[in-house]
């Protein structure tokens, strides 16, 4: 069943690009990357939403 093999190849390449390239190098969580714990994340977000201006 050649279509099956082709699809597995597409799936594996896609998942590899998504998780080994995009996620690691381009889509690290912004807050996770910047802060160590939830208290720091809260402080940042509450600052953002109370000090923002257009």
């Amino acid at each position: 069943m050649t279509v099956c093999k082709t699809l597995w190849k597409v799936i594996i390449i896609k998942l590899a690009v998504m998780f080994l390239v995009l996620k690691i190098f381009f889509f690290q969580g912004y807050l996770d990357n910047k802060f160590d714990n939830d208290v720091q994340k809260y402080d940042y977000v509450i600052d953002q939403i109370t000090n923002i201006t257009n």
Partner: peptide, 28 residues
């Protein structure tokens, strides 16, 4: 099956974007 295989996990990219581009929203 072809549609499912090609489309599978494309929705996860939206979740990547939530965490990276929309972090205030994601937290809230």
């Amino acid at each position: 099956g072809i549609n499912f295989a090609i489309g599978v996990a494309t929705g996860l990219i939206l979740e990547f974007e939530f965490g990276t581009n929309w972090s205030n929203y994601s937290w809230m």
